[in-house]
Nucleic acid binder design. Structure first.
Lengths: 206, 206
DNA sequence: ATGATTGGATAGCGATACTCTCTAATACTA
DNA sequence: TAGTATTAGAGAGTATCGCTATCCAATCAT
């Protein structure tokens, strides 16, 4: 399959494919001459993954490159790889100052209340702190009770996800990294729909 | 308070405040002369809300304007307003073709399995369909069982949210619209942290 | 009186994600 | 085998976004 065939099969413009090649998101085809190369199913699959990440997941090309690099070449430490993947996912937050003894007090309190690991090096901790601060700044602070309720429900989800994790380490990393990124839009949509459902029932009761 | 005071109190640059004024995100101050106006707490609060929406929530100025307009002037129909708000939130998806008899089959099946309202006009339905399609395209399809598990956990969350909804309709709209937007990053961060927690325990067990 | 500040308008900037153009080499097509 | 189409590769161009900077005349603070 040549580049135009790949473009046709994937629905991505030739120029865009060349752009992804240049940006290192897509591996080069097998060169058959100075001006030709052939592409196969692996390119098609990769292209679909790229479009999923840059489209519905909403990653920039830069962020997608980071995630894809982790999928291509994960370490053997699932915990560390997951941390790096989450760090590449939006919303990106700056790390706290090095000297701060307690940089993420709200997040720490929430995780302790939930009985979960608190590791200030983990990007999601900074993300949680930023999100809590934003809600508070906007005048809708999140109570500890609510955090507890959220945390418990979401822990159920996470447990479900991890139970289904493949046994093989490489597959496990891919599953975890991509599952984090790809399933988030699903989670958000379902939450919105649950709100809609409850709201509809309330309206009916008026 | 003049514009420089507002800039100082909010931490937003004067030029940026002017930009928000121009873009209609922030209401004008009370003009005291041709070249002066005073701003008050309502401007400060609004500015904080704008920064929360354009920052951690990740909205564009355009999307924030839509959300803010709904908060300022909601209809009295909570359901409809919530729908419009969700439609303004990313990821934005195009509506299906008008003539399609069953435009969102996966989403419909999921919602029916969950016993929830299915309304194809609701933007979150299209978002769910797009998210499911993206996961599938990327090679990590979401099974009906998983959707059911997700849906149930998230419905708990939504029920918790709606129980705490203010009784007064105007406040209810603000709570629902802003709660949808502002709490999403919290939900995502907590999910990521729950994954981290479970992964950490698995690693320990190795 | 004088220097700083303001509202209002316009222009510029840096990043992002493509998209277009070009060239020379090569590959199908009649 | 002549002619047309396609390709790789690289660079430049484009549109949008979210500011940011500059300018002006009016006005304020001292």
């Amino acid at each position: 399959m040549r580049i135009s065939g790949l473009a046709h099969a994937s629905g991505v413009a030739v120029a865009t494919i060349k752009y992804y090649l240049r940006e290192g998101l897509l591996h080069a085809g097998v060169a058959t001459s100075a001006t030709q190369a052939t592409y196969d199913d692996s390119h098609l699959r990769r292209l679909r993954l790229i479009r999923a990440l840059t489209g519905p997941v909403g990653l920039s090309v830069q962020q997608a490159r980071t995630i894809l690099a982790l999928v291509d070449d994960p370490g053997d430490d699932l915990y560390a790889t997951l941390g790096r993947a989450v760090g590449a996912l939006p919303p990106s937050t700056d790390a706290a100052a090095a000297g701060d003894p307690d940089p993420y007090p709200h997040a720490r309190a929430a995780l302790e209340a939930l009985g979960q690991v608190y590791d200030p090096r983990f990007p999601a901790v900074a993300q949680l702190e930023a999100a809590l601060a934003a809600a508070e700044d906007a005048g809708l602070p999140i109570s500890p009770e609510r955090l507890l309720a959220y945390g418990r429900s979401l822990r159920e989800l996470a447990a479900y996800d991890l139970e289904r994790m493949p046994a093989e380490p490489r597959a496990a990393v891919e599953y975890t990294v991509l599952g984090t990124a790809l399933y988030e839009p699903v989670v958000l949509a379902l939450r919105r729909l649950a709100h809609q459902d409850v709201a509809a029932r309330l309206d009916l009761g008026r």
